[in-house]
Simulated scan of single mutants.
Amino acid sequence: MTAYSPLPYAVFGVSGRTGAATADALLRSGQPVRVVVRDSAKAQAWAERGAEVAVADLTDLAAMTQALSQVQGAYVVSPQHYSREDLFERAELIAEITARAAIAADVPRLVALSSVGADRESGTGWIRMNRMFEQRLTDAGVSTIFLRAAYFMENWMPMVGQAMRSGTLPTFLAPPQRLLPMVATVDVGSAAAALLQEKRTGTCAVTLAGPKDYAPNDVAAIVSATLEKPVDVAVLPETEWPEALADAHFSKAALAGFTEMTRGLNCSHIDIKSDPRAVEWVGTTPLERVIVELVQGQR
């Protein structure tokens, strides 16, 4: 039996899926948690569950240092601001502040959300922001486990909505029968919580995929079975990507990053097995469960 520590685990990103899943997993296992938010109003539900609440902007060194002080460890994220033209510069600033705050607060260990492909020097689009995060924390000498998640199953939500309305599932991933590692965000949270509690020191990378690989055709088949009607797959040519993404309100820089990242996925330049030093973890949540929930949530 491990000795109980009254110090909490700090969890960032609880307004998003992976941070919320991490905080939830820690609380369910009886661990003390400090959620870190920009707006205290967004932490009410966590406070009601017994979590401490810290308020910090990710670019405020003093507030970040305070939020990371007196903790057993922390789950940190670098949120990506897709509406900004300076999203890469913003990510670099957040990485710098996070590293400096972690050193100032003397955090024993971090689990940092990253992505498959972060080991690649170029040709990864958005994933370069995760690489910046990894490099800055590594250079600072902070004990960090980089949790390189596969393609989020929840990324299919807007495409599932279109399939429900039109009977056709659009996809940027091609060819539609090619299998790709995907992971549920609840598994990211479970893995982050487990890694925080391992008490390991030093820096390493852990890749995280779902129980098996899936293709866009599998997503369409699950939607079809759930709706009990045919659903086709339509691979969107690259010339149509800007129009297809118009509702996302991406900046020009973000659209270019998405395009390069998706090309990298489609040609297998971004590959979960590309870093032989990374430790492989596997989640338990099947794609079927996530897609059915997405369908039910949009009915």
Rank of each mutant, 00 (worst) to 15 (best):
Y4W: 04
P6A: 11
V11R: 04
G13P: 06
V14R: 01
G19F: 08
A20L: 06
T22R: 03
A23S: 05
P32C: 10
P32G: 08
S40G: 02
R49V: 07
G50V: 09
G50M: 04
A51P: 03
A56C: 12
D60T: 07
Q70H: 14
Q70Y: 01
A74R: 02
A74Q: 03
P79A: 08
L87G: 01
A91I: 02
L93F: 00
I94F: 12
A95M: 11
R100S: 14
A101R: 04
L110N: 09
V111A: 10
A112S: 15
L113R: 05
S114F: 11
V116N: 10
R120V: 08
W126A: 06
I127S: 01
M129I: 00
F133Q: 12
R136K: 15
R136Q: 15
L137R: 07
A140M: 10
T144C: 13
I145V: 15
I145R: 04
F146V: 07
R148A: 14
F152V: 09
W156F: 14
M157N: 12
A163I: 09
A163M: 06
L173N: 00
A174Y: 03
P176V: 10
S190G: 11
L195T: 04
E198C: 01
R200H: 07
C204D: 13
C204Q: 14
A205Q: 12
L208M: 06
A209T: 15
G210R: 03
K212H: 10
P216Q: 05
V223H: 03
T226K: 13
P230R: 06
V233T: 13
W241I: 08
P242E: 06
A246S: 14
A253Y: 00
A256K: 14
T259L: 13
E260C: 10
M261C: 13
G264I: 10
P276R: 11
R277D: 14
A278I: 11
V279W: 08
V282P: 00
L287E: 06
L287T: 02
Q298W: 02
